[in-house]
Design a protein around this nucleic acid. Structure first.
Lengths: 204, 204, 204, 204
DNA sequence: GATGAATGAGTGTTCATTCAT
DNA sequence: AATGAATGAACACTCATTCAT
């Protein structure tokens, strides 16, 4: 299917492809330096192309972000497959996945914000990206729930948002890394001490 | 304490005081409508004063925000006192307090962002405000820990940040309210199911 | 004449012809919606062709407009013939013709502007179109003048411009239709009251 | 009244006034060269001020135009008074006035367009300016009608629009001046030859 | 013949902050 | 103390036209 449509627009034109890739590289670097709210014009300038060219490839900031992030999909997908096979149990797999998502959402300063927005608007190009990850989260979550390793009243969307929130807490490069980790831990175990009459062992 | 420094500049001039209050009222309204990133110029205009006057009272956006929020301190302090006496146990008190903080940080759209920043920069006028609430959080947390109702490895700062994160997830008025509540719940209990040795009852 | 030059490049290629027609249809619709200053790129996009193809067929906006309008020539020519036979006198014929021209120039929002320009520059592809209509106007005018039904000091060009001006006054769809009609009436009879020798008393 | 409000905002600040005047001078020159659609940024740059300063004084193009034109009001008003006293009859006065309006609307290339728009939208700052002139037109028109020198079925608005249309026909500096005059003449007397054998019958 | 990528100056507008009045 | 004018870079985004493919 994808092939047939691709055959229609035969040549993606070598220079266009090159430009596109160059824009992505430049944006990656620029966003790393200035956060996701950095100037698109500045990216175009740094890439040595006209602003129009950037907008042709990526009609708006979110489209650019989406492309940037989907380039990292492979890594996340790889991580997912790895967790599926190597995790010692469903809870570890879910935990590992959520950590991976958190890292992913920390790619650029300010990234969690549009991602969160994308979970509710559905209009953003980021929405599809997010949706895919929520689905994966759901798979891990269900597995853990089936194994009795995760509470039954948890929704995948909420875990995804919790991961984003953790990225958000980590915030800028300067922020307290420990607090980010702490929120991740809270998300897993909560602050509440189980009122264990006998001996509830719980691993921090 | 604050009074003694104020005594230095004897009469704060009635009109200045009036202006200040009027700015605060206007800003309150404006931020409610447009979020915390709204235009300060617009606030000055709506308040019917010059931009310079606004900047005289509040040298920057965060100073304005800090004043705005500290006006709500009383409510939070009242809530704190209420929780201290009425909560049936330390865990409920802590939970109630965190919910109060979460609500407080939802006062304006986009408010969690500068608050989070204030927890790390220390330079922001908001830092003092935050610090006070972190201290209160610490009191509740310690009480709960002393009662064995909260895990010992939790830090007040992290709980405070978790509350902010919850506000952040709630986000704009449009956002999914359930997800906000879900993160609060996660923060309390985590998604992990305690490995029950007897018989795990689980409702699908 | 035009045919002989066309015979040079024998087959206009079926697809080229089809493209050309499709562009015209699309442009007709687009200009109706957005006025004559609408984006040519958008027209190409809507027509499903590349921008270059559009420019191959019509090197600039005015060339496109000219083709668009000459497609309506038939209607105007038909109207001309109709007026020649059916009008009860030369003045009515001229009046009918000017109204037809006015309607024609109202085809798209903003059309009168390039038409007026075309009457003076001669470089525009629209110039030919306009010239033809001015000639026809001249025929009707002369007939009326011969019949003593039109003043002798009137020029066809000026009547044509007056018709364009009337279209211009009608302006966008929103404009005051009555004023358009009023200008047409003024053009015919003027605001001046003929000095009546008897005694025309007229109360304002 | 105007004085009391003026006293409130005591100092229009000498530099502000100077800037404002300088902007107006620059805009006058720039619009003369490039027409009313010229770049506002370019005007700011040429005036040696920041774009923001221009926008502070004139929030949009039409506000700037309105100020520019109202500076010419005095001339028109003077002309009005002159016509009132010196015109040999009401018809000449009206004719002189319409010519004055036409000249006024020719001040810049492209000016008739926003003026016409202003007669229908009412939202434009130009609307007030236009309204004033329409009122004056009405005075001259009524006088002429009272004298039996103008047809009773004419509206002031339509005469005003006819004057604008005449300016529009004159168009750019390059345009055919004769055609402009011709439309003005048409507006006054029409193209129709009164079929007067003896007594002038004229159909409305 | 057709394509559509590239151009890049240009658009109007905003805004936090400073400083002359 | 209050004012509000000035700043001017920055913003996202557009579009007619060219030209390599």
């Amino acid at each position: 299917m994808t092939e047939s449509t691709a055959s229609k627009r035969r040549a993606p034109r070598a220079d266009a492809r090159r430009n596109r890739d160059h824009i992505l590289d430049t944006a990656e670097q620029y966003f790393s330096e200035h956060g996701v709210t950095g100037s698109l014009d500045a990216i175009a300038k740094r890439a040595g192309i006209g602003a129009g060219t950037l907008y042709r490839h990526f009609p708006n900031r979110e489209a650019l972000l989406a492309s940037l992030l989907s380039a990292r999909d492979e890594q996340l997908v790889a991580r997912r497959d790895e967790l599926r096979t190597s995790a010692k149990n469903a809870a570890e797999a879910l935990d590992g996945w959520l950590n991976a998502v958190t890292d992913w959402a920390c790619a650029f300063d300010g990234l969690p914000e549009p991602l969160r927005a994308a979970t509710t608007t559905n209009l953003s190009p980021l929405a599809v990206t997010c949706q895919g990850f929520i689905t994966t989260t759901d798979e891990f979550l269900r597995a853990a729930q089936d194994q009795g390793e995760a509470r039954a009243d948890i929704r995948a969307l909420d875990l995804f948002l919790a991961a984003l929130a953790t990225s958000w807490v980590r915030g800028a490069a300067m922020a307290d890394a420990a607090s980010g980790a702490a929120l991740a831990a809270l998300t897993r175990s909560g602050w509440e001490q189980a009122p264990d009459h006998s001996n509830t062992r719980r691993t921090a």
